[in-house]
């Protein structure tokens, strides 16, 4: 991307590399799309009971997180300690936030007068 855009002659290896990158994004996009549309469809047509619906949506959301990590953030190709630390840190923070929220709100619900 320097000033005179130097175009390296497209060798075969580079082309396949580019193509592999592209396909990886297509895969990621496709999987993310499916993992989003399925829960919407399940809610729209009330496919199962409320309880199992919630669980299915949660599981699909987590799978989608992994898809994003794999295909968009390119984690897992080269295993690097730095990446691992960041993922662990993020996960622990998210667990704190979600678990804390559920703990607090469930406790409040318990203490409320039933309507």
């Amino acid at each position: 991307m320097s000033k005179p855009v130097t175009r390296i002659p497209a060798t075969n290896a580079l082309m396949t590399n580019k193509r592999r990158d592209f396909m990886s994004y297509v895969w990621g996009f496709g999987l993310a799309l499916i993992l989003t549309l399925v829960p919407f469809a399940l809610v729209q047509w009330q496919a199962t009971t409320r309880g199992s619906l919630l669980i299915i949506i949660a599981v699909l959301a987590m799978v989608q997180t992994v898809v994003h990590f794999r295909f968009f953030l390119h984690l897992g190709r080269k295993r690097k300690r730095e990446d691992l630390l960041l993922v662990l840190f993020s996960t622990s923070l998210l667990i704190i936030m979600v678990a804390g929220t559920i703990w607090i709100m469930a406790n409040l619900a318990e203490r409320m007068t039933p309507i």
Binding site: T101, I104, L108
Partner: peptide, 11 residues
């Protein structure tokens, strides 16, 4: 539940 606003806001 408005309580969740407090919870999220202070998160």
């Amino acid at each position: 539940n408005q309580m969740n606003f407090l919870n999220m806001f202070w998160l």
